[in-house]
């Protein structure tokens, strides 16, 4: 039995124990029939056309329909950042947006940043600095990290920027504040800051 089977088994068990309460909602089940919708978007440079239940998040569209499982589902409520993707040049929580709202969007997931043998500099820096332990939050951390350095370069201020009208720098304090939407339960934060600092230096 693989780890995935174990997880699937646990989910099925949770679904079974949840039956009584969902049974209580059976009266409204008719209104829960899926409404299907079409969407065309560009994912990692490839145009993809999908027909989805309108409820499908961008994260689920990528993972379940496009089989791009690099982006991770952590909390599914925008609190942990594991699902972070770069959409039309900006990092977002892909769990908190609907795929159907992204007609024509350009989406970059961790798979689009780099691949084994052809790593993005941020991926290579995370490896070099041990910017992870279990790795579950890492795709989100790396997508966020790439976007954070672009935000600093674009002069977007943060909560810790002393002078709102001055120049922005990728200091450790700036990196920590800007990365606060990406939680790492293993606590690899200091190594993530080092990895990002190295990439920021390289870009300067």
């Amino acid at each position: 039995m693989s780890r995935r089977d174990l997880v699937a088994g646990a989910t099925a068990a949770a679904a079974l124990t949840a039956l009584p309460s969902s049974g209580a909602r059976a009266g409204s089940a008719a209104t829960d029939a899926p409404v299907m919708a079409k969407v065309a978007l560009t994912v990692n440079g490839q145009r993809r056309e999908l027909e989805l239940d309108a409820r499908t998040s961008l994260l689920d569209a990528a993972r379940e329909h496009l089989h791009l499982t690099g982006s991770k589902k952590g909390c599914d409520h925008g609190q942990c950042g594991a699902c972070t993707m770069i959409v039309d040049g900006r990092r977002i929580n892909s769990c908190l947006t609907l795929a159907v709202m992204h007609q024509g969007s350009e989406i970059t997931t961790i798979e689009g940043l780099g691949q084994p043998g052809n790593l993005h500099p941020m991926q290579a820096a995370f490896v070099a600095h041990d910017g992870y332990q279990c790795g579950y939050c890492t795709p989100g951390q790396i997508c966020s990290g790439v976007a954070v350095l672009a935000e600093i370069k674009a002069g977007i201020p943060s909560h810790v920027t002393a002078d709102l009208t001055g120049a922005m720098e990728a200091t450790p304090a700036e990196i920590r504040e800007r990365m606060s939407g990406n939680i790492c339960r293993c606590g690899a934060y200091s190594n993530i800051v080092e990895a990002m600092t190295e990439v920021a230096g390289r870009q300067a």
Binding site: G78, G81, T84, R90, R91, I92, N93, L96, T97, S144, A147, V148, E151, P157, S158, H159, T161, L164, R178, M179, S180, G181, N182
Partner: peptide, 19 residues
């Protein structure tokens, strides 16, 4: 309107503020 800029930057996360 620095108070507005500061208030916005004190809220949520970078990902959420982008949306």
């Amino acid at each position: 309107y620095g108070v507005l800029s500061r208030a916005l930057l004190a809220g949520a996360s970078g990902q959420l503020r982008n949306k």
